[in-house]
């Protein structure tokens, strides 16, 4: 079984709030000095699912990412977790991409890989939280898509997928090949072992595919077909105000709290 996991490098979500800066004119986040980017935590969970499937059934797992010149670390991280192969789709032209173009590039790169039975994506990237790429990629590759999986197992050439819904989960079965996006209910992903990191650092060079290698010319991409646009990027006002609701006993205080929440229109 061949599994492809799409991974993205994002700005570290643990940047101290005071150091998180945006450029409101350009609708862009300004990278924080000296804090290296990390793998999107949801994508690490997608890798976790791939590795569990590999351990249970045997599989070859490939991690693929798209970006500028500086995204190799994220692929090395995937390899240190236990992924077999990494592919870096990297081009100067790929620096600032929107969801649609990213999905398009991924679809071309995955077509070049050729043989695959399952494509896994994180439910969304923890930077913009859009969750578009997986769905668009599935459409472009004409694959059945199941989103928000909290468990994926293989039984007789079909994937059994638990899809999270508000009330609980639904169980789907889907044949190969398919695209599944992974929900965070899957639990925390494994951390690379010491030897995993060393082996990844010693590992062979990661193949890098340019735009030309996968036959993508960005000027051919119809920008009008880009269906999303950032209108305004801003840091919300986070002023907090504390108030202690009083009462002679717990019951009275609770009643006062309820009255207050109702008065403020919160409930």
């Amino acid at each position: 079984m061949n599994i492809i996991v799409c991974i993205k490098q994002i700005m570290d979500p643990e940047i101290p709030t005071g150091k998180f800066k945006i450029d409101p004119e350009a609708n862009r986040v300004i990278p924080s000095e000296g804090i290296p980017p990390v793998i999107n935590p949801f994508d690490a969970q997608a890798i976790e699912v791939a590795l569990r499937l590999k351990e249970a059934n045997g599989a070859n797992v490939t991690a693929i990412t798209v970006g500028g010149q500086d995204v190799e670390d994220v692929v090395r991280y995937a390899i240190s977790m236990g992924v077999d192969e990494g592919i870096l789709v990297s081009d100067e032209a790929f620096k600032a991409l929107n969801s649609f173009v990213t999905a398009f590039i991924l679809s071309r790169a995955i077509s070049r890989i050729g043989q695959y039975d399952l494509i896994l994506c994180g439910r969304q990237a923890a930077d913009r939280d859009a969750g578009h790429v997986g769905l668009m990629l599935g459409e472009m590759l004409n694959l059945p898509i199941i989103t928000m999986a909290k468990a994926v197992t293989l039984s007789s050439d079909k994937f059994r997928v638990e899809h999270v819904i508000t009330e609980g989960y639904q169980v789907y079965e889907v044949g190969m090949p398919a695209l599944i996006t992974i929900s965070d209910e899957i639990g925390p992903p494994r951390r690379p072992s010491g030897w995993g990191v060393i082996a990844a650092a010693m590992g062979k060079e990661i193949p890098t595919w340019s735009a030309q290698d996968i036959g993508v010319n960005l000027s051919d991409v119809d920008i009008k077909s880009v269906r999303s646009e950032t209108i305004r990027l801003f840091i919300p006002d986070s002023r907090r105000k504390g108030e202690v609701i009083q009462g002679n006993n717990v019951a009275e205080a609770s009643a006062n709290l309820m009255a207050r929440l109702r008065a403020d229109g919160i409930i």
Binding site: D12, E14, I15, P16, T17, G18, K19, I35
Partner: peptide
């Protein structure tokens, strides 16, 4: 401490 970068375990 709030200006420092931490990854809290």
């Amino acid at each position: 401490l709030a200006v420092n970068k931490y990854d809290i375990d």
